[in-house]
């Protein structure tokens, strides 16, 4: 049950954290009216994934490996685009907060319902199909043993609870600090999603270089362990990383982090003490 619990936790963690931050952002910028769009996106992604998972598990058709990797890879790269947009949209808010320009803040957070819906849909749907196939396998096994599906559901529940905790914490801390550090955190998450998407495309044979590893510490940090689960679940850091993955990670994170830090941290006013949290980056 523990192994299935950790798989459930890993599959759900990243989406739960991104959703927790997004909900906190909308609540703190008085955009509760956008919350229904967010939940529609989450619900649609979950329903589509579970439906597709059911059709593939119970029906005569199956998904080829290449197709599944191609879907995972493309959704991953799409998710990076949307999360990056969300990061800079938050960063812009942080900048306006600094100047206390209320109307500026209004303009910065002006965002369509459709954009929120798409962001929630992709963030949840990215790992949705694999999670659904995993859950359906658990349901199929439930005839002989209920342990796998119980573990899987508890794992996903824990991920959701952690997303909730992030939200709870985020609504308490200083708003500007919130935008700055969630931005930094999300950039690291997005870089991980990108490198994982690149690996999916490598495994599907669309990109080369699967055998060329930059490092391999899978003997020390096994992917099935708690540490491996958290590293993978939050930052998508794989114990064995290919050179192409590492290059994509660095190529994304360096300019993005630089632009973001320049935008959200520069010329901090006196009141902001900017306590650095070294573990965030």
């Amino acid at each position: 049950m523990l192994a299935n619990y950790l798989i459930g936790l890993r599959e759900g963690l990243e989406a739960a954290l991104v959703m927790g931050i997004l909900v906190a952002y909308l609540v703190r910028t008085q955009r509760r009216d956008l919350l229904p769009s967010l939940w529609v996106g989450v619900g649609a992604a979950a329903a589509l994934s579970l439906g597709l998972g059911a059709a593939l598990t119970l029906g005569p058709r199956s998904l080829s490996f290449t197709a599944q990797e191609a879907i995972g890879g493309s959704l991953g790269i799409l998710a990076v685009g949307l999360i990056t947009w969300m990061i800079f949209w938050m960063g812009k808010t942080a900048r306006y907060l600094k100047r206390h320009l209320e109307d500026g803040l209004e303009r910065a957070i002006a965002v369509g319902k459709g954009a929120i819906l798409a962001l929630a849909f992709i963030a949840v749907g990215r790992e949705g199909l694999e999670t659904a196939l995993f859950l359906w396998a658990g349901i199929e096994a439930a005839g002989s043993t209920a342990a796998p599906i119980t573990g899987a559901v508890l794992g996903l529940g824990t991920a959701a609870a952690l997303g909730m905790l992030i939200y709870r914490g985020a609504v308490r801390i200083n708003l500007r600090v919130f935008f700055q550090w969630t931005g930094v955190f999300l950039i690291v998450v997005a870089a991980g999603v990108l490198s994982y998407g690149v690996r999916d495309l490598q495994e599907a044979g669309i990109l080369p270089g699967l055998g060329a590893l930059a490092f391999d510490v899978s003997d020390t940090i096994t992917p099935g362990s708690v540490t491996g689960t958290l590293l993978k679940g939050i930052f998508n850091i794989s114990p064995s990383t290919t050179i192409v993955e590492a290059v994509a990670w660095v190529t994304y994170i360096v300019p993005t982090m630089w632009l973001f830090v320049r935008m959200a941290f520069a010329q901090a006013p006196q009141r902001s003490s900017n306590q650095a949290v070294p573990t965030s980056a």
């Binding site: 649609a44 589509l48 597709l52 059709a55 593939l56 005569p60 058709r61 199956s62 998904l63 080829s64 197709a67 599944q68 191609a70 879907i71 493309s74 959704l75 799409l78 002006a110 965002v111 369509g112 319902k113 459709g114 954009a115 819906l117 798409a118 962001l119 849909f121 992709i122 749907g125 199909l129």
Partner: peptide, 28 residues
């Protein structure tokens, strides 16, 4: 904002179509 909304609304069906069309059509 209008452009963003339209773009985003167009995005979801495209993804769904991509996922559906990726099923292999083998008979069991």
């Amino acid at each position: 904002m209008i452009i963003r909304t339209r773009w985003a609304l167009a995005c979801a069906p495209v993804v769904s179509a991509l996922m559906l069309s990726a099923c292999t059509g083998q008979s069991s």
